[in-house]
């Protein structure tokens, strides 16, 4: 399968603005930062979560704890891939019981990653609340999960791909929609 850029929907400034807005919404909606923990999903969600923690610090002057989830071991498609994906460690060095958690990822699509993340979270304790923040919501959910904070809603077709690039991983900041090149469909 080969993809080609169809349109650029966010640049660096737009990403930054969206994260600031999400940070504001979190503080507003949850009233206080007490018992709040931001947890990012590897790979890009982890960095976005870190930025949200920074923004919250700027807004409210409080340093909220940051955790990182690697959901590889909770995936429901392990047997469908030819070799096991590389496992990175999960970093949640605190008990989650009674905490309010915002899970952060870059794109919300089928919700299967989010399902795995919620499952894994539960193995670290019994949080009082779990919410979801994503940079892009592109639709096509396959599970009854909905985001609480969305940077940008982007209607897409299933043939398209949402490609998020951030400095920490890709060396640039942008979100693009990629379309399948005609005649090169994999199916």
């Amino acid at each position: 399968m080969e993809f080609r850029e169809k349109s650029k929907i966010m640049d660096g400034a737009a990403i930054e603005k969206a994260l600031i807005r999400i940070a504001h919404e979190i503080v507003e909606k949850l009233k206080t930062t007490d018992d709040l923990i931001i947890i990012g999903i590897r790979t890009r969600g982890a960095y976005l979560a870190e930025r949200i923690v920074d923004r919250i610090l700027e807004i409210s002057g409080v340093g909220v704890p940051l955790g990182i989830l690697d959901i590889t071991l909770y995936r429901d498609d392990l047997t469908a891939v030819a070799s096991q994906p590389v496992v990175h460690s999960t970093e949640i060095p605190f008990d989650l019981t009674g905490k309010r958690i915002v899970l952060v990822d870059d794109v919300l699509y089928t919700c299967r990653t989010m399902r795995a993340a919620i499952d894994e979270l539960m193995d670290f304790g019994r949080p009082s609340l779990v919410q979801i923040a994503v940079l892009v919501d592109r639709g096509h959910r396959e599970l009854p999960i909905r985001p609480d904070y969305v940077g940008k809603n982007v209607p897409t077709s299933r043939d398209e791909m949402v490609d998020v690039e951030i400095d920490e991983v890709d060396g640039k900041e942008q979100v693009r929609i990629l379309g399948l090149v005609e005649g090169k469909a994999g199916k």
Binding site: D70, T72, L73, Y74, R75, L78, V86, V87, H88, S89, T90, E91, D95, D119, E120, M122, D123, F124, G125
Partner: peptide, 20 residues
Amino acid sequence: LDTADSFREISTRAIRKVPA
């Protein structure tokens, strides 16, 4: 060894089990 490093943490969790 790198993969094993990532697995170390699981044995320190409250629930020492993953569904992999």
